[in-house]
């Protein structure tokens, strides 16, 4: 029988189906106790409408794999960061035409610095690899993505923005 961790790790993200919830870093913990499975997930954004769907998908997959007693817990802290997207997840995003986020490192205490111009991050075009790209909009089709444009191949593309 597949372990509960293996089953949960294979569940895909409803909005970025190229990634599993484990790739995305949303799956925080899977515990098995006397046939009962406790899964802990963390939301990407406070208003992420997919969080219920993630829980339902996890429950459905685990029940289907022979774990009838499933509890899904939500953990808000530590807050999700795109740094938790795995290396494999980053490769999968790029292969799907979505630019993965840069690494941002640990957050520092104290006031958050103001950015009066968009940060000039080097985001490579997932189609042609050019670094000559610019931001169209910091807010995209889902809370976690920004819209960019490549000036080399003229293709627009999505970018999982750093948070």
């Amino acid at each position: 029988m597949t372990t509960a961790l293996e089953v949960a790790s294979a569940v895909r993200d409803p909005e970025l189906p190229v990634l599993t919830l484990a790739d995305l870093g949303v799956l925080r913990d899977v515990e098995e106790e006397d046939g009962r499975v406790v899964v802990t997930i963390t939301p990407t954004y406070s208003g992420c409408p997919a969080i219920d769907e993630m829980g339902a998908d996890l429950r459905r997959s685990l029940v289907g794999a022979g774990y009838p007693d499933v509890e899904v817990r939500l953990s808000l802290s530590p807050a999700w960061t795109t740094d938790w997207i795995s290396e494999e997840g980053r490769s999968k995003l790029a292969a799907a035409g979505i630019a993965p986020p840069s690494r941002i490192g640990p957050t520092v205490a104290g006031p958050v610095p103001l950015n009066l111009v968009p940060p000039s991050r080097q985001v490579a075009c997932p189609q042609c690899g050019s670094l000559n790209t610019s931001e169209i909009s910091r807010f995209g089709s889902t809370a976690c993505k920004a819209l960019r444009r490549c000036h080399a191949c003229a293709e627009p593309f999505e970018h999982v923005k750093e948070i």
Binding site: P43, Y45, S46, L76, S77, A79, W80, T81, I163
Partner: peptide, 8 residues
């Protein structure tokens, strides 16, 4: 925890 999440 709500604040830590919302801050970003």
């Amino acid at each position: 925890a709500i604040a830590e999440k919302g801050l970003k």
